Amino acid sequence: MFEQGIGGAGVPADTMPTGLLTGNRTIDLEHQELFAALKAARTICLDLKTYSSCAGCGEARHQQCEQALVDVLGNVLSFVLDHFKTEESIMRDSLLMMIDRELCQVHMEDHAGISAMVERMVRELDSTQTVSLVRELDQLLTRWVAQHIATHDVALVNWIEREDSALRTSF
Rank of each mutant, 00 (worst) to 15 (best):
C45P: 07
C45V: 15
C45H: 14
L48Q: 09
K49M: 14
K49E: 12
Y51M: 13
S52D: 10
C54M: 15
G56D: 12
C57L: 15
G58A: 06
E59S: 15
R61N: 04
H62Y: 05
Q63W: 05
Q64G: 04
Q64D: 10
Q64S: 11
C65E: 10
C65A: 14
E66F: 05
A68N: 12
A68G: 10
L69Y: 09
L69D: 03
V70F: 08
V70W: 09
V70A: 10
V70M: 13
D71L: 05
D71Q: 15
V72H: 11
G74E: 02
G74Y: 01
N75W: 04
N75K: 15
L77Q: 09
L77C: 06
S78W: 03
S78R: 03
F79N: 00
F79I: 00
F79M: 02
V80G: 02
D82C: 08
E87D: 06
E87K: 00
E87Y: 00
E88M: 00
E88Q: 13
E88A: 00
I90M: 01
R92Y: 01
D93F: 07
D93S: 13
S94P: 06
S94A: 02
S94C: 08
S94W: 00
L95R: 08
L95H: 13
M97Q: 09
M98L: 09
I99A: 10
I99F: 07
R101V: 07
R101E: 11
E102D: 15
L103T: 13
Q105H: 14
Q105N: 15
Q105T: 15
V106N: 00
V106E: 07
H107E: 06
H107P: 12
M108T: 07
H111G: 05
G113Q: 15
I114G: 03
S115V: 03
A116V: 12
V118I: 15
V118S: 10
V118W: 11
V118D: 12
E119P: 06
R120N: 11
R120L: 14
M121P: 01
V122N: 11
E124P: 00
E124Q: 14
L125V: 05
L125F: 02
L125N: 03
D126K: 08
D126W: 02
T128C: 02
T128S: 14
Q129P: 08
Q129T: 09
T130R: 09
V131I: 11
L133Y: 07
V134E: 07
R135E: 08
R135L: 05
R135C: 11
E136C: 08
E136K: 14
L140K: 15
L141I: 01
L141K: 06
T142F: 06
T142I: 04
R143M: 09
R143F: 01
R143G: 11
W144V: 01
V145N: 07
V145S: 09
A146S: 12
H148L: 02
H148W: 04
H148C: 03
I149E: 01
I149Q: 01
I149W: 04
T151P: 01
D153V: 00
D153G: 05
V154P: 00
V154S: 00
A155Y: 04
W159Q: 11
I160T: 09
R162S: 13
